[in-house]
């Protein structure tokens, strides 16, 4: 269990560094799409909701999971769609 935690923590810390360098390379002109897309990908939390909805018996956990799944799905579809809509507007000089 503790070894498991340390390896997860390692992944977390390394990912913070990856995030740091990747985000600094984002052009400021695209900071709004950046926020919209980070919002969409952080909704990968939906995987936790799916696990809670998974069991066939209804209980508090399944109800929570169902609501969480709807909310996260709104974010995923809405976030990616609005990002795509914004990015389509950025055009070069003709």
């Amino acid at each position: 269990m503790s070894g498991d935690f340390v390896s997860q923590l390692s992944i977390f810390v390394l990912a913070v560094f990856v995030g740091y360098y990747v985000v600094w390379s984002v052009t400021p002109a695209l900071h709004t799409p950046l926020m919209a897309v980070t919002n969409a990908i952080s909704s990968v939390i939906i995987v936790g909701a799916i696990v809670a909805v998974g069991p066939s018996d209804w209980g508090a956990a399944k109800i929570f999971g169902f609501i969480a799944m709807v909310l996260a799905a709104i974010n995923i579809f809405g976030g990616f769609a609005v990002t795509q809509r914004m990015l389509a507007m950025y055009k070069k000089k003709k």
Partner: peptide
């Protein structure tokens, strides 16, 4: 879930 940990870290630092 490593996908969630990595994504959370990316979004947090962003």
């Amino acid at each position: 879930n490593n996908a969630l940990i990595v994504t959370g870290a990316l979004v947090g630092s962003s």
